[in-house]
């Protein structure tokens, strides 16, 4: 059986309020219930899941984060997490007993320069990331970086990759933005043409640097099912205990479609919710193939996350912003 991964949003609380973040990813409503978490650990393995990646909100803020780590490693799952790094000096010691199960930590780095990163993430957040990676280097904890490409940092991609390499990162992953109203207001997003330009640059960086440089799913491709969620190798579980299709579709608020949600683990078993997700996925695949085969794809639909955002009705609001380069591309 293939390796399968669960992305688990431990909380939607966060100590930061990054300009690009989806509102409901850091609106502070709550944390994942620990009994639900326990059931996930008990039942996911029989469906081939062997790796957990914690996200949020800020996952390290889950009030029982240390306990969750012990549960995960005792249940035999490998794990990692993505973090803003702010709390790392406080929590890193709790990771050390589980280092044989920890596959790595991903720090969000949104600029090579302090000013660029902090402009998006808030004062001192860059230095906190630097403190976190200093600890990783000394303690031998593997780490990588994630960078959301914005209009502010698109000129720094080379520098960001260089910084990641010098700091001892095992890799750097760039990703396109998922639109939010704030991103639109603050002109943080870049046009489809400019996105493709950044993809070309990323390809060049792959050849330039000795560490892996990659792009998160969402880049332009004619492959219809290019990512782990669409290949059913990855699922998302949000802090409310819902199994959902993908983290990129999560946290968009109440006024959007919610067909990406398969079921809540306080109301049904893991197997049932997972079975529903398989149905959602099959229907999605069928619909996407049909639209494509009929020749009804717009060029922008080859950005797969953009396709999903439309399919699952997450970006209808964008058509109210005609000056935005993506507005006219909404279905």
């Amino acid at each position: 059986m293939n390796h399968r991964e669960m992305l688990i949003e431990l909380t939607n609380r966060c100590n930061l309020s990054c300009h690009h973040c989806l509102d409901r990813r850091h609106s502070g409503d709550g944390d994942l219930n620990i009994e639900i978490f326990e059931r996930i650990l008990q039942n996911a393995r029989e469906h081939g899941f062997d790796h957990i990646s914690f996200t949020g909100g800020e996952p390290t803020l889950h009030p029982r984060f240390t306990e969750l780590l012990t549960m995960v490693s005792e249940a035999g799952y490998d794990f990692g997490f993505v973090t803003n790094g702010w709390n790392f000096t406080r929590i890193y010691e709790k990771l050390l007993p589980h280092s044989n199960k920890l596959t790595g930590i991903t720090f969000s780095l949104d600029g090579a320069r302090e000013g660029t990163h902090d402009r998006l993430r808030g004062r001192d957040s860059y230095r906190r990331v630097m403190q976190a990676v200093s600890i990783c280097v000394i303690k031998g904890i593997p780490f990588t970086f994630n960078t959301a490409i914005t209009s502010h940092n698109r000129g720094e991609l080379y520098e960001i990759a260089g910084l990641a390499m010098k700091l001892g990162s095992r890799g750097i992953r760039f990703g396109h933005l998922i639109s939010t109203p704030r991103i639109v207001f603050e002109n943080m997003d870049i046009s489809p043409v400019d996105r493709r330009q950044t993809e070309i640059i990323t390809c060049q960086l792959q050849k330039t640097f000795s560490i892996p440089v990659s792009m998160a799913p969402g880049y332009y491709t004619t492959e219809l099912f290019p990512c782990a969620p669409l290949k059913m190798q990855e699922i998302n579980i949000n802090w409310r205990g819902n199994i959902t299709m993908c983290c990129n579709l999560s946290g968009h608020g109440e006024d959007v479609g919610n067909d990406d949600i398969a079921g809540n683990l306080s109301e049904m078993s893991f197997s049932e919710a997972y079975g529903r997700l398989i149905h959602i996925n099959r229907k999605f695949q069928k619909d996407k193939c049909a639209l494509h085969d009929k020749g009804n794809f717009k060029d922008s639909d080859y950005f797969p996350c953009w396709y999903c955002l439309n399919y699952f009705r997450k970006v209808a609001w964008l058509s109210n912003y005609p000056e935005n380069p993506w507005s006219s591309l909404v279905w």
Partner: peptide
């Protein structure tokens, strides 16, 4: 940027040179 570890040692990271120093 200085990072203290358990008050017993520290890592210095220079943001310009990107070099660590313990």
């Amino acid at each position: 940027v200085i990072t203290e570890l358990e008050g017993k040692e520290a890592v210095l990271l220079h943001l310009g040179t990107k070099m660590y120093f313990t």
